[in-house]
């Protein structure tokens, strides 16, 4: 898992450097922005991270925790809760690796002491690792948990 993330990260970082060098890179998304269309949809994880957080350099951290069932009976409604003890949380993102559209939901924090917790109910098509990312102080931290799904809930 770690190696995979590292590889993805380094590949993305190098493309990022190229893009920045060519002056193609648009500034990081403005706060209170519109819906981040480029993060959603059938995009690979690294691309979604790049679109949502503006970077895909990720460190695993104990300060991010995911509370979710080990096994979900109904993939259409899987309750998840992301909690973090990190300060200055900027955004939170949830990615279900094996969903047709991996980037599931995110929270953008603008102030008021928000960001320590974010919970939602998500759909899962099949058993998959669920990765939670928290961006705080310019860095992205993550944690992951595999959720087993007995009945999928992505329609079709």
């Amino acid at each position: 898992m770690k190696r995979r993330i590292f590889l993805k990260g380094s590949v993305a970082a190098s493309t990022l450097a190229v893009a920045a060098g060519a002056g193609l890179l648009s500034p990081t998304r403005v706060l209170a922005a519109a819906w981040p269309e480029s993060a959603f949809g059938p995009r690979p994880e690294a691309e979604a991270l790049e679109a949502f957080f503006g970077s895909s350099d990720v460190v695993e951290s104990d300060e991010v925790s995911l509370k979710a069932p080990l096994q979900a009976e109904n993939g259409a409604v899987v309750p998840i809760k992301v909690m973090t003890s990190l300060a200055n949380v900027e955004s939170i993102g949830v990615i279900v690796v094996k969903n047709p559209a991996p980037f599931t939901t995110g929270l953008e924090v603008m102030g008021g002491g928000a960001g320590a917790m974010y919970s939602a109910r998500i759909k899962m098509g099949q058993t998959s690792p669920v990765n939670c990312y928290v961006k705080a102080g310019g860095k992205i931290y993550m944690t992951s948990q595999e959720i087993k799904v007995t009945v999928g809930g992505c329609g079709g």
Binding site: A32, W35, P36, A39, F40, G41, F52, V96, N99, A101, F103, T104, T105, G106, L107, E108, V109, M110, G111, G112, G113, A114, G115, Y118, A120, R121, I122, K123, C154
Partner: peptide
Amino acid sequence: VAQADLGTGV
């Protein structure tokens, strides 16, 4: 204070 971005996966 915060904005949640949802998609079809919710």
